[in-house]
Amino acid sequence: MLDAPPRPLVEVTDLKMHFPIHTGVFRRHTGDVKAVDGVSFSILPGETLGLVGESGCGKSTVGRAMLRLYEPTAGRVVIDGDDVASLSPEALRKKRPTMQMVFQDPQASLNPRMTLARIIGEPLDEHTAWPKAKKLERVYELMDAVGLNRRFANRYPHEFSGGQRQRIGIARALALNPRFIVCDEPIAALDVSIQAQVVNLLEDLQEKLGLTYLFISHDLSMVRHIADRVAVMYLGRIAELSPRDALYARPLHPYAEALLSAVNEPDPVRAATRRRIILKGDVPSPANPPVGCNFCTRCPRVFGRCRVEKPPLQEVEPGRFVACHLFDNTAAGRTGASEVPEHNQQGVTQ
């Protein structure tokens, strides 16, 4: 299904990012934090893929490993025809203009000693040999595009509010006309009224410039608003990857179901009648994940097989991918899947 037209712009295959743990006096390598443990997905040109999950699930690490801000342990990351994960340093540098990132914390990701014009123009200094005047013209153009007044070009980041700083970060990411942008929790640090401004800007820019986004967030309502398809991660693996409407209307993976049911709806009438699945306990450590399914320690529908065998991510309905034994593609599994809505859910308190 991946080679069906149109061709994806981004194809991630079995991406792994393990961070070694060194202990003792001799700093021996005694284990790995498996932050990302075999993640595969693709993103079509002009599409927004939402990547959701709780803190520590590895969603930000996926974004960073994809752009080689970390050296991935294994896997392929093909962006616009090149495998970013295996490019030589020089080739990677040439590749950078096509793929950019917007960071979570606009406070920390902008150099406080650089003016706005220098921050936004820095990628141009690095990757182009343009004359000064042309660069400044481009900086002004970018400031217009993200809604920053040109008069602010010589000011410093601390003079701006959180929402405006995020606009600076976005302008910088756009400087080299990228095709693909990883948005790593771009609104998490902002107030609700400001979040909407930044999200609208990202949507406008996508429409105008044909950008492709990986939108990493823990805010499920906002992801529903902006994404075309959504991948739900849990402990370093994708639990479910589905088109947005299908996922929010009827999540298949028990974790996706619990996660969506936990979202607080701003409607007291619905809040009073909704069934919430309250998961017990905490997420296990990624240094020591469970033997079987990563979710087996908290899953309300766990059964024997889950504790011994990791379920692979497979297509269970057209366009919907789920990593769960309940939805096994074999004949036996299929009958199991059709019974799912009737399954008794432990852990349902309301």
Binding site: S193, N200, R224, H225
Partner: peptide
């Protein structure tokens, strides 16, 4: 009223652009 319209819904029809409150 504005605050209630800046947050996207988790169910129901999907809104177009989100309502924003300009300024600080």
């Amino acid at each position: 009223r504005a605050l209630l319209r800046t947050i996207p819904a988790i169910s129901g029809p999907r809104e177009g652009r989100l309502k924003v409150i300009q300024g600080q």
